[in-house]
Design a protein around this nucleic acid. Structure first.
Lengths: 221, 221
DNA sequence: GGCATCAGAAGTGTCGACACTTTAAACCTA
DNA sequence: TAGGTTTAAAGTGTCGACACTTCTGATGCC
């Protein structure tokens, strides 16, 4: 920490420390480290991350736009609470973006993609917890967004992903319902999706993804 | 300007000056005041807005997330260039969000909405320029996003709106093609959309909106 | 003239400081 | 003891400063 104004050296696209704080704080929030609605004070976070308030402020702005944190009229920052009614919004928005992405990904789909997703679905059968299952699920959906080839779809989708993850962690904490049955529903649904992506028409992929996400909404709720 | 650290007084949700700079700078960028790709230096902007660099920095972060500005590896900020290939992405994302929103708005639709949009379409017939026509067009689509009742759809849509507007202003500047024929295409298409929103099924509204936006993509391109 | 070199100007990343606001706690007072 | 009031602590918004990096254009060399 040498001199007070030391070491801005390795210049990465817009602020090193702010990005670090952003990613680390996001991980902490999504993983449920801070209870929903708890206050996030800049000086406290600054000390926690061994930095000054400036990078913390930048990180908070980014997190606010990701929907993980909200600013009050007084300027205070709190971890955003995500309730059942928010999940409806999130899943509708996911359905919109992901169904479009599925149609686009269908055109770019290769055998390598099929193999990757097939492995993912196989892993879902051997899963030990709901948390592990949802991680695989999100990975799968993330891959479809990537393969759509539309960077804006992916960018818009990302905040929804974090909000969804934060919500899942929350309900897993509240009700440790480990009565998961991946084989009864999730896995067949994903197999159907993979088939539409790999060997269906774009319109079919779109349709299957739309139904898949909207069905998950009723489940998550 | 009294003392150096004066007047943070009327506290609005997270920084007054930063919000002001954000909105004003966005307007300037969207209206084509800064050429695409031109550099935005924090000290220069700070002087322009009679403030220090801190609020300017916050505004730039927000604009980056809106896709109007981009940060280089060196930390420099430039007005983002939006080319034809970006428009494909933007319109696909718009189609995804707006078609979903149309289906939802259909359920909430009232006679007041119909009257408002009908007036908008009538105004399109008496328009004097392409710029005026696109303003009405964006207003119309914005209203559908609002009436979807899904705040996240609206939030995700907003950046696309600004990017689209910036693109339109740019091509209007390049080619002053005032050979617009609203009656031949835009207006009938909007009337069909209104009918689906007001008296069709949600699925129909979704479908009509999807086709409407994707058709506009080929036109804008 | 064309091209490398190298000062100086301009710009970014981060820090600590301070005015003012909001929150929390201590302290009365009935 | 409950409720209001005052006071201290904590927090936010903004500023200017400074180390370091990147850009720019003037200079010198071939």
């Amino acid at each position: 920490m040498a001199s007070p104004h030391a070491n801005p050296s390795p210049r990465a696209s817009r602020s090193n420390r702010a990005t670090t704080v952003h990613l680390r704080l996001r991980k902490e929030i999504v993983s449920g480290h801070y209870p929903q609605g708890s206050a996030l004070a800049e000086p406290v976070l600054a000390e926690h991350f061994h930095t000054s308030r400036a990078p913390v402020r930048e990180a908070l702005i980014a997190l606010e736009r990701e929907g993980l944190v909200s600013f009050e009229k007084t300027g205070r920052t709190r971890v955003r609470t995500i309730e059942a009614k928010d999940i409806r919004e999130i899943m509708e928005a996911r359905a919109a973006l992901e169904s479009m992405a599925a149609g686009l990904a269908n055109r770019n789909w290769t055998a390598a993609d099929t193999a990757l997703i097939a492995r993912n679905i196989d892993a879902q059968a051997n899963v030990q917890s709901l948390a592990e299952l949802s991680r695989l699920d999100i990975d799968l959906h993330h891959h479809v967004m990537l393969r759509s080839g539309n960077t804006r779809l992916l960018q818009l989708w990302e905040p929804l992903r974090w909000q969804y993850e934060a919500y899942l962690v929350e309900i897993f904490k509240r009700q440790a319902k480990e009565d998961y049955r991946p084989e009864t529903d999730t896995i067949p649904s994903h197999r159907k999706l993979l088939k539409a992506l790999s060997s269906g028409t774009p319109a079919e992929a779109t349709q299957v993804m739309m139904e898949h996400v909207l069905f998950n909404m009723t489940w998550a709720n």
